[in-house]
Amino acid sequence: MTGYMAEMRKLVGHKTIIQCAASIMCVDDKGRVLMGKRSDNHMWGYSGGSVEIDEYAEDCAKRELLEEMGLIAEELEFFYVNSGPETHYIYPNGDEVSNFEIIYICRKWSGEPKSVDGEMTDLRFFSYDEIDIDQISPPIRPVITKFIEKMKSVK
């Protein structure tokens, strides 16, 4: 952990912090979403992370995608705001957060998916009917549920 959140953790320890985050769900032309297995809780998730001071949410989401999955986002579309009690989470290291997360969908990117910073392993695309919600990282389950609903309604 670096940047703003690392500085806040020095001040508050493991106490709950409101975590403002931005994330990207890369969706391919078959409607599949790219996810990686998180190295901290060994559950599946998309790329995303904490917004730094004065950083635009879109820039944060793009930065996180590059850092975690090695892809450059070329176009973003707003998808969802994930907040509320369902997003309260305690990381395996004991850090506690209440998430406020802006999620974008990216259908146009460049590069090949690869784990860059070690936060994610086993990157792969999932169709909505392959996703096991119990294997999704808990604070993003509402987002994945919304994504599945959206994909079912398109069919």
Rank of each mutant, 00 (worst) to 15 (best):
E101P: 03
D54S: 02
K152Y: 07
I18M: 13
R141T: 10
D117I: 04
S115H: 05
I18L: 13
K146W: 07
Y128K: 08
M69N: 04
D54I: 00
G84E: 09
R32P: 01
C60K: 00
E58S: 15
Y56M: 10
I72K: 08
D59I: 07
D132Q: 03
G48V: 06
E96D: 14
P92Y: 13
K37Y: 02
L76E: 02
V81S: 01
L71I: 04
Y128F: 03
M120R: 03
F78Y: 15
E7G: 04
M151S: 14
S115K: 08
I144C: 05
V97L: 10
I18Y: 05
E75Y: 01
V154M: 15
F100T: 12
K152P: 09
R38D: 15
T121W: 03
T145D: 01
V81I: 09
F78I: 12
W44Q: 00
N93F: 05
D122S: 14
Q135M: 13
M151G: 11
L71R: 04
I140A: 03
S50N: 11
G48N: 06
M25T: 04
H42G: 04
P85S: 15
S23G: 06
E67I: 08
L76R: 09
C60V: 02
R32Y: 07
V33F: 03
R38T: 13
F78H: 08
G48S: 04
E101L: 10
E96F: 11
L123P: 13
V12I: 10
E101C: 15
L11K: 06
